[in-house]
Every structure is written in C-alpha cells, then in structure tokens.
C-alpha cells in the first residue's frame, strides 16, 4: 500500500474541521493515517529555532519532510498548515511525490500565494463532507490509491476518447 500527503493550504481557521472529516473519510486508505498541524511541528520540532523572517517556511518544510517519510513508508498524512508561500509548498510537493494539495478558500493569510493547480478546492462555506469526497476521488485520479481514475467521469472519459479517435488523434 502506498502512502500519500493531503496538504491543506489557505484559510487556517477552516482546516481543523476539514482535517477531522478527512481522517474519518480516508480511514483505511493507507497503512496508517494521521493529522499533523504546523503548530504542532512548531511546538515539538522547532521550539529552539530563531523566530526570523523564514521561520514559517522552516516549519512548513519540516512538516513536509515528515510527510515524505510517512508516505514513503505507506502511511498517509493530513497536513494542516496555512503555508502561504507557493514556492515552499511546491518544494514539499517535489519531495513527497504522492502529494495532493487542497486549497481551502476563506480568509487567507497575509501575502498568501494561491496554488496554480490545486488538485482540490474547498469553497468558502462548503461542508467538509463534499470536500472529502473530492479528495478521495483526486487520490484515485492521481493513482495514490489502489484504484485509478482521472479528471473525467467514466462517461466523460468515453466521450473524450471517442472524440479524439474520430478526430484521428488516437
């Protein structure tokens, strides 16, 4: 069983409820599954770090590294971090591999850099249950779960394939 990281970014205040819903909704999809927050990493792993300009980045990178270690060992991590800097998130994405970014809309932190192509978006005010379903589907689409799929539903996929065949592309 392969592991993965679901990375919540954006409105920090909405993330705890969503993370709890994901913990329940994704139970059993990896060897083990847990939720880690940036605050927890800050408290347990960064307490001696100087509070400089890049302190938040250090915390985010350490959370990402934990996700990397967990996912390569078949575990899943729900990472909760406002993580405003896109470059840092993208570095974590590269490190982890099986990485799924969930953009949580709402009140964004100052200087927040929106991801270009988050796999999932949680609209402001949207119920966590609907987001969980899309996260599960996105994990399937990206091949992070055993079954696979893609951007399209089965019916849409058949339609696109037929179109491309008729156009001569396939």
């Amino acid at each position: 069983m392969s592991g993965y990281v679901v990375w919540l970014t954006g409105d920090r205040a909405r993330m705890d409820a969503l993370a709890d819903a994901l913990r329940v909704g994704l139970a059993g999809t990896a060897g083990a599954l847990d939720v880690l927050t940036a605050e927890l990493v800050e408290d347990k792993l960064c307490s001696n770090e100087p509070r400089g300009a890049d302190f938040r980045d250090v915390v985010v990178r350490r959370l990402g590294w934990l996700g990397h270690v967990l996912s390569r060992n078949g575990c899943a991590l729900i990472a909760v971090a406002a993580s405003p800097r896109r470059e840092v998130r993208d570095d974590v994405r590269k490190l982890v591999g099986n990485f799924l970014e969930v953009l949580v809309h709402g009140t964004m932190p100052d200087g927040y850099e929106t991801p270009h192509y988050p796999e999932v978006e949680a609209a402001a005010g949207e119920a966590p249950g609907a987001v969980v379903a899309r996260v599960r589907q996105a994990l399937l689409d990206n091949g992070y779960l055993a079954a696979s799929g893609n951007v399209y539903s089965a019916e849409e996929e058949a339609r696109i394939k037929d179109r491309l065949e008729k156009l001569g592309y396939l």
């Binding site: 192509y117 091949g143 893609n150 951007v151 996929e157 696109i160 491309l164 396939l170």
Partner: peptide, 19 residues
C-alpha cells in the same frame, strides 16, 4: 501525446488534461 501511460506499473493510459 493526448494519452500517456499512467506509469510503468500499469498498461493503462490517461488523458493529458491541464492537471
């Protein structure tokens, strides 16, 4: 191309969408 293999671990293909 329009369709690319999902990986070496499968013979399946996937569409090259914006994602």
């Amino acid at each position: 191309g329009f369709r690319n293999r999902k990986g070496y671990g499968t013979y399946e293909m996937d569409f090259a969408t914006s994602k």
